[in-house]
């Protein structure tokens, strides 16, 4: 056995070449983030002298202390991002599970129609402008949390993942048995199906949580009031306006202009990037497995 494996594996130089290529690419993927972390703890003097560098002259937590000082808008955005992510993910999961479960049921009379109803939207859509007009004028979505959450509630891709998961892990006899025992449809779903579908639910939940956390386009379209800015959009605003945070904090007049003049703006922006990425980077090793299974299901069956 051992010998056969040896015969049928690639030669040592080839394997080394593989390692080199893959290591280089992995570095490309991870080094920018490390670099940004380093910049965020570099002192403004060092940045002025030698620019952004992997080996700063002086380490300083200045940027993070400014983050605390300029709190208002920042905490508000952090809170907005969390709220939108938690609430949005919960609603997305609920609606996706309900929809996918009904589509999974072979004895559902309108199964064909509702399957088409959801999946046709993957092939054809109104496009950006009509969707924007409908959301703004018909549904009145602007300047509210609803305006960020509602436009991305459902996604046919998630429904496919969930339905495929039901198909592969729930035997139909289970539903028949529950029906014979007199359990209602909702009771069957919430008491029997959901508890045994945790991996599928985790996949859909994580995919939508990431989508909400990373969203900046929808706030850009529908939100004008800084009160509702999520972190990502705040960060985008700061590409051009670094003093945005100061303007939106409670400080006024001399105090504000004083702060603007001493602001470690470069490090501060990078500190915000770190604050956005850290929740993802921390959770990532744990949730990666679920995401991989979900994405492979969705794209192969879709």
């Amino acid at each position: 056995m051992k010998r056969k494996r040896k015969v049928n594996s690639i030669s040592i130089p080839a394997e080394i070449a593989c390692h080199v290529v893959l290591i280089l690419f992995c570095l490309l993927c991870i080094v920018p983030f490390i670099f940004v972390v380093i910049i965020s703890i570099t002192s403004q003097d060092s940045i002025r002298a030698i620019g952004y560098s992997f080996f700063p002259k002086e380490i300083s937590m200045e940027a993070y202390s400014y983050v605390l000082k300029l709190g208002d808008q920042l905490w508000r955005s952090y809170f907005n991002s969390f709220l939108v992510t938690v609430l949005g993910t919960f609603l997305t999961m609920l609606m996706t599970i309900l929809y996918a479960y009904a589509l999974y049921r072979k004895d559902f009379r309108f199964r064909g129609f509702f399957t088409f109803w959801a999946f046709f939207t993957m092939l054809f859509g109104g496009g950006l402008a009509p969707t924007y007009v409908v959301c703004k004028t018909v549904l009145g979505l602007s300047n509210s949390y609803a305006a960020i959450i509602v436009p991305m509630l459902l996604n046919p891709f998630n429904i496919i993942v969930m339905r495929t998961f039901f198909h592969s892990s729930i035997p139909e006899e289970l539903i028949d048995a529950a029906a014979i025992d007199g359990a209602g449809e909702y009771k069957t779903l919430f008491k029997i199906i959901i508890p045994i579908s945790k991996p599928g639910i985790a996949t859909v939940g994580l995919l939508s949580a990431l989508a909400y956390w990373n969203e900046w386009f929808i706030p850009m379209l529908y939100v004008r009031d800084a009160k509702y800015y999520p972190l990502q959009y705040l960060l985008m605003q700061m590409q051009t306006k670094v003093d945005f945070l100061v303007k939106n904090s409670s400080m006024i007049g001399a105090e504000a202009s004083n702060i603007i003049s001493t602001l470690p703006s470069d490090a501060l922006r990078m500190a915000l990037v770190v604050l956005i990425v850290v929740p993802i980077a921390c959770g990532y090793p744990f949730f990666q497995r679920y995401i991989v299974s979900g994405l492979t299901i969705g794209s192969v069956k879709g």
Binding site: L98, Y99, A118, T121, G126, V133, V134, L139, P151, E185
Partner: peptide, 20 residues
Amino acid sequence: MVLPGAIWFFLLRYLPMAGI
């Protein structure tokens, strides 16, 4: 069960299609 989702698809996907 499908109704909340179906309404969502109607409002946010089919209505814009009419907007074409």
